[in-house]
């Protein structure tokens, strides 16, 4: 067995199964995500990484199995409990998922407007602060259509951290970015990790990014978690998919 379990998991998946029609996406995934650390989930495209992350926030419900966030089981939780858990989450979306009819700054302010009681000036101050944190202080009044792909992701990140969440999820932070920009995003995640000290969950197919930012790494393949553990342990894994990924090749037949 090449998977290990952390001592103090904030999120626990127990034997999660999910299929869409005939397509089995998750075939019994169990894992614990360590509190306060950065966990990276690796895997080739189409192996259900995004599906897994959507189970954690309850956007999808497992066909079988359980998803625990501390002591709440997301599948059985009422809508109210589920929303209470989600207030502890922030998520950076693959394409940003910014609201098109708002400016970049208004997007960042958005969660504050609905979850915090505060004046407009205070909201603006906090949003500007978060935009500065992702190194985009100048885009506050820009419409989202005027942002580049990398900027959209960073605004999405600012929005994800504006409520000071316990867990930040990153859905493919590097997809669609050129290598230069990818490097800056990695550095940004690294710096945010040091400043915020919260739990990060990153899904990516970019091995360089995984090794740069991760404390723990897991590898998803064919609906299974084939290897999982602290970065050093993971890199020693002799599982063929891991080896192939580390040498940036895919094994025959997958």
């Amino acid at each position: 067995m090449t998977t290990s379990t952390p001592d103090d998991p904030i999120i626990r998946l127990v034997d999660v199964h999910k299929r869409f029609g005939d397509l089995v996406v998750l075939d019994g995934v169990s894992m614990g995500i360590p509190r306060g650390l950065t966990t990276v989930l690796l895997g080739p495209s189409g192996t259900g990484k995004s599906v897994l992350i959507k189970h954690i926030v309850g956007l999808l419900e497992p066909d079988a199995g359980e998803v625990w966030v501390d002591d709440v089981e997301m599948g059985r939780a009422s809508m109210k409990q589920r929303y209470a858990v989600r207030r502890r989450f922030g998520m950076m979306f693959q394409q940003g998922a910014l609201f098109d009819n708002l400016t970049a700054g208004e997007n960042v302010e958005f969660p504050l407007r609905y979850h915090r009681r505060m004046g407009a000036a205070e909201r603006r101050r906090i949003a500007a602060e978060k935009l500065a944190l992702v190194e985009l202080p100048e885009v506050y009044d820009r419409p989202t259509s005027a942002l580049s792909g990398g900027q959209r992701k960073r605004v999405s990140l600012a929005r994800a951290i504006v409520l000071e969440p316990d867990v930040v999820l990153f859905d493919e932070p590097n997809s669609g970015l050129d290598p230069m920009t990818s490097g800056t995003v990695d550095a940004l995640i690294q710096r945010m990790k040091e400043q915020l000290g919260v739990t990060f969950v990153v899904i990516t197919h970019d091995i360089v990014q995984a090794v740069t930012v991760a404390d723990w790494i897991g590898m998803l393949s064919g609906g299974h978690l084939v290897a999982y553990g602290p970065t050093e342990t993971f890199l020693q894994s002799d599982h063929p998919t891991v080896r192939a990924f580390l040498s940036r090749k895919l094994p025959e037949g997958t």
Binding site: K54, L59, Y83, R86, M91, Q94, A97
Partner: peptide, 18 residues
Amino acid sequence: AVMRIGEQIDALEVMALS
């Protein structure tokens, strides 16, 4: 529909807004 495919609806869910 545009919000759905741009994951903006998922974003609302994650922000704990129905």
